[in-house]
Amino acid sequence: MSAAENTVKLDIVSDVMCPWCFVGKRRLEKALENTDPNINVEINWMPFQLDATLPPEGKDRQLYLSDKFGGKENADKFYQTIKQAGDGEGIDFDFDAIKVSPNTLDAHRLIAWAGQQGDEPQNQMVELLFKAYFQDGKNIGDHAVLTEIATEAGMDAKQVAARLKSEDGLLETRQAIDHAQQIGVSGVPCFIFDGKYGVSGAQAPETLAMAIKKIAAGEGL
């Protein structure tokens, strides 16, 4: 079997303000650890916005929780399940540290720019954004924060700051979000294999590993 035949293309539709997407990333990493090393999995992170109505500066977290869940108490109950899932994957979610619910459009532009440098730089960018938001409580809609994260990822700070101020990549990002909705993605994470087969939710590593194995063998899901 040639390298091309043994390559699985995996598009991950995700939003960096979605805690289940962070859990899903960890479970995928476990799946990849148990995947035949001869199978080359090409990963591309695709944008999605859980709440595109959030203003560019974001929204006060407590007000957001009140509007979405009817108050912090209800939100805490909702997030308890996620926290437990995170604990199982080595993610120490700190929801109390989050002060602003961000608009993630610019974060998705950053992910796309990192992706122009390859799979690994893009994966690193996604990881840094997840950690900044869910563990450090940073506003990942803020340009200064995004520039700082980009610098940590090895990108040029001045160039990133200038691009964020421009409309560079905005149209493409919005089109990609629209495309995800048009093909039926209504929740994230959503793992799309070879552009044909979708697996929704933060699935168990075994489920993802089996999907990769089947696709690499030329089987459908």
Rank of each mutant, 00 (worst) to 15 (best):
K68L: 02
S2T: 14
F95E: 10
V188P: 02
I82E: 02
D11M: 04
K158E: 15
V188T: 10
D168F: 01
M155H: 09
I140A: 10
M46R: 15
I43T: 11
S186H: 05
L63D: 10
L28C: 08
D15I: 04
G154I: 08
R27C: 00
E5V: 09
A132G: 11
F95H: 04
D92V: 13
E73A: 11
A85W: 05
I39D: 06
K165H: 02
V185D: 10
L50R: 08
F48R: 05
H108R: 02
D36Q: 07
T81G: 13
S14K: 04
Y64T: 02
S166E: 00
E148G: 08
F93Q: 08
N40E: 15
F193D: 03
T151W: 06
I140P: 12
E120D: 13
L164D: 00
A204T: 01
D96F: 10
K165R: 06
N123T: 14
A157R: 03
E152G: 14
M125G: 09
E120A: 11
D92T: 11
I43L: 13
L110A: 02
N103L: 09
L28N: 03
Q159W: 00
D60A: 08
Q182G: 05
S101W: 07
E152I: 14
D142G: 02
L105T: 04
F93M: 10
Y197T: 10
S66V: 03
E29G: 04
L110F: 01
G71T: 07
T207L: 03
C21S: 13
L221Q: 06
R163L: 11
C190W: 08
E172I: 13
C18K: 11
K165I: 00
P55S: 04
G220Y: 03
I12C: 07
A161D: 14
G169W: 01
D51N: 15
A85E: 08
D36K: 06
R163M: 07
N123L: 07
D36H: 06
S101I: 05
L65W: 12
A202D: 00
E148Y: 08
N44C: 12
G88N: 09
Q49E: 15
Q117S: 13
Y79S: 07
A114H: 08
A97P: 12
M1A: 10
K213T: 14
A112Y: 12
Q117D: 11
T81C: 00
E152L: 15
Q122V: 06
F191G: 04
L50C: 07
R61S: 05
E120I: 14
E167Y: 03
E57T: 05
K158T: 15
V13F: 12
K83R: 15
Y79C: 11
Y64V: 02
L10E: 05
A52G: 07
A107I: 00
D87P: 00
N38V: 07
A132L: 09
P205L: 02
N40K: 15
K214A: 01
K77L: 08
I91N: 11
K83W: 10
A162R: 00
